[in-house]
Design a protein around this nucleic acid. Sequence first.
DNA 1: CTTAGCACTCAGGGAGTTGGAGTGCTAACA
DNA 2: TGTTAGCACTCCAACTCCCTGAGTGCTAAG
Lengths: 367, 367
Amino acid sequence: MLTLQNNDCQKGERIPLNERKLKILAAVVEEYVRTGEPVGSKVIANLPEIGVSAATVRNDMAMLEQLGFLEQPHTSAGRIPTISGYRLYIEKIMNPPALPEEERERLDHMLAEQGPMTGELLIQNATTALAELTQCAAVVSDFSPKFSVISKVEVIPAGKRVYVVLLITSGGAIKNKACRLEFDLTNEQLSMFSDYLAKHLEGVSVADLSDERMADLAAAMGAYMMTMAPLVQGICELSRDLQQHALTFSGEKNLFSCEDLDKMEVVRFIEHKEELVRLLDDSFSGIRVMFGKDSGSFVIGNSSMIVSKYRKGGKNVGSLGVIGPMRLDYAKVIPYLEYFSEKITDLITAESDDAPPAEQSGEQGKG
Amino acid sequence: MLTLQNNDCQKGERIPLNERKLKILAAVVEEYVRTGEPVGSKVIANLPEIGVSAATVRNDMAMLEQLGFLEQPHTSAGRIPTISGYRLYIEKIMNPPALPEEERERLDHMLAEQGPMTGELLIQNATTALAELTQCAAVVSDFSPKFSVISKVEVIPAGKRVYVVLLITSGGAIKNKACRLEFDLTNEQLSMFSDYLAKHLEGVSVADLSDERMADLAAAMGAYMMTMAPLVQGICELSRDLQQHALTFSGEKNLFSCEDLDKMEVVRFIEHKEELVRLLDDSFSGIRVMFGKDSGSFVIGNSSMIVSKYRKGGKNVGSLGVIGPMRLDYAKVIPYLEYFSEKITDLITAESDDAPPAEQSGEQGKG
DNA sequence: CTTAGCACTCAGGGAGTTGGAGTGCTAACA
DNA sequence: TGTTAGCACTCCAACTCCCTGAGTGCTAAG
């Protein structure tokens, strides 16, 4: 259910950590997440679930520090969790309760704010809701268009020598672009070209729309090519557009309100969102947590990112991510993320069941 | 050529400020903009263009302070300009040289980065370039769609019971939306409906697309209405969309890198960009400079905004703004802004000359 | 194995001190 | 009348010194 990057946690099982030590680690993580201050032995000892004295806690903490799960900012300060500490906590210790029914309803409502969902709006709502709920930044990388097929190509005259090319996919994506030609087309030319495009593109998987294929298409047109070049060019651009992961971002401001994060790093990060794709794209299932500069060098210093996938027809077609300070309430955030990815999976699967004509054949033809 | 908000500057002419005092004010503004530190009399006296001693400068500065153009952060510090000081400087004193030819070429290149410009891309490039050049945030509020006419309405089948409505304006804006119907349309129904829409919407000014008009349209359809309701609804939404000012923003990050501005205020500002519309919308010509909370309460505390208009067919159809710290190199920024608004005016005017069919009649019919 | 006790460390905050930049004022000068 | 040098004054900013309190590790006893 929960997959983590396993750098140094594999040994986790063999470490001689009795239940009390795990409890103490959990308490340190939770206190630190709550207050942001290094946590001292006294505070821990006073917690009801820890039945021992401060001195004992100190001994255990010293061991936890030796094992690399805790650290001290300076000699006479309390302890804070290390990355390994967070990992151990998330993976083995914390145990968030299932979301209560009323909470699920609230979330459903946030997702489906404006009635029935089209893909894009769903994604938009999901990021906004995630950012709102977690008070972090949220990102969704949607690469489902890649898995759909062209369901419609149109060329529409839109003024003197101006034509709009329109691409619609089975997944509901609509892209358009205005192109300027050297000459006006006759009705006959227009309908011939339209038919030609329809015949050669409709039903084709978006993933197959390589530039080479488009070049072939153009070449096959022969004589017409000259006149139509800008239109073919336009369609190329649109199809390239469709193949890109659409990144939807929300809650950037939360990163700025966050004490723990360096403002300048946040700025740099926001300016280079594209680099996220690399991290969001990795295929895995379940949930993955990445820490700070630990994983690739782009992420903000003191931050962590939690990523989950959503699926369609059994294939991963997008990633849902939450980016926040390392000092994050994982036990709260992770269930949200899990619920949303399940929910989105359900919704987009249902949506495609509803309108399966081109889709099914196309996707199965090109698994 | 340069219009300013004239709160207390009207008296400017009558104030007994000899040339030396103006020079000193200018020097204070420029030094302060350069260094960010309060400026002392000694620094000013050492400037070559000021031929007097520090004591004399002190006397003059005392007077400038009395008149409200300078102020002291505390007793033993140098002077910094007040808002009135900046105003006076911008309005009467500073005298930026015309942009050299090579600079103009560089700017032209930034605007037209990817070949010939469509409206949206032009606006996008302009904001990016402005933000880049000034190291501030840049915003463009484009309300030109309002002044164009619908040149094309299409309804395109895009799957089982799914139809895409497409609206194209003479200004080159393209909007689309997928709508789901209860039933599939017959070819006959579709073409009838398309014809009906074309007849009643094409050539109509976007500004005239009120909800009432759309309701009338729907009502006139009578029997068909039931079936087509979602499509009409979709067109309504698109037309509402067209009437909104499109805000294009760039360079937010620069505000964060800016020492003078409160990060939290910047965050709040970025979250509420829409409020800008009120300020950008005001009709005036030339250039307007607004300071901090001085003008409406939304702007960031220590900031200023410089706004310029661009036109099409003699009408203001958009605003170009730069938002930065009050301590801003106005003599550099204002010429950029002037040049860009002229250039955009030229480009979009040329563009519409190029394809005047629906446009001309429509706009003239509805001045 | 747990606990009380104790000596030790160190960050953070307040008080006192100093240096320097900049001012206003006055009196002399052109 | 306008300009300048000189001087006393103000006040911020930086620095040192000191103290407090939180928290630790270690040791010895239970």
